[in-house]
């Protein structure tokens, strides 16, 4: 089977979603400056700027991983494991993958987008992202544990375990519902 050319999404540097966040940030920054004074304003800036600098290498690593995955991952493997025909197992596999995937949102979205581009099913992708957000160990170890303590965290994770699968199945059902409606509209 000849492979279809890789679908790369054209990315705009600036778009409406970024603009709306920019407006919210600008308004908040002005309010902070006027309410709390310039000292607080610059204090927030420096501490967050350090965070920004520390994040940059991660972003680069994630973008490189995504670019490599897009060209190296055999398409038939992706289709078989997490494609549209992968069934319940595909959602389970995506859930496991999301739970062990390292890194934050910076990493996960480019990688998930790379998998979508090479044929991963929407339901599996939703399960993957949901699993990463709710079960990802990096976030749990670095952030949640110090804030909440072991008991609450274990409790929360046990409760969250089935949720990525629920979301994946729900997404798949919605996709087929939309497809059926489209077909009916086209047929009727």
């Amino acid at each position: 089977m000849p492979e279809a050319p890789l679908q790369r999404r054209p990315r705009k540097t600036f778009d409406w979603s970024t603009v709306s966040i920019a407006v919210a940030v600008a308004v908040s920054a002005v309010v902070v400056y006027r309410r709390d004074g310039s000292e607080r304003f610059f204090e927030i800036f420096t501490s967050d700027f350090e965070l920004f600098v520390s994040i940059l290498p991660k972003v680069l690593a994630a973008c490189l991983i995504a670019a490599f995955v897009a060209v190296l991952m055999p398409r038939e493997v992706v289709l078989r494991w997490v494609g549209a025909e992968s069934g319940f197992m595909g959602i389970v596999i995506a859930t496991l993958a999301g739970a062990i995937c390292p890194g934050g949102p910076i990493t996960i979205f480019p990688v998930a987008a790379a998998f979508v581009a090479i044929g991963a099913d929407t339901g599996a992708t939703v399960a993957f992202i949901t699993s990463w957000t709710l079960l990802g160990y990096a976030r749990v170890l670095v952030w949640e544990l110090p804030f909440f303590g072991g008991e609450f965290v274990i409790w929360r994770i046990v409760i969250a375990l089935p949720l990525p699968i629920v979301a994946g199945i729900a997404a798949r059902m919605m996709v087929s519902l939309v497809a059926r409606r489209r077909r009916n509209e086209a047929g009727g």
Partner: peptide, 11 residues
């Protein structure tokens, strides 16, 4: 990222 990380502190 700049906007999200540096800006979100103000929000």
């Amino acid at each position: 990222i700049m906007l999200g990380v540096v800006g979100s502190g103000y929000i």
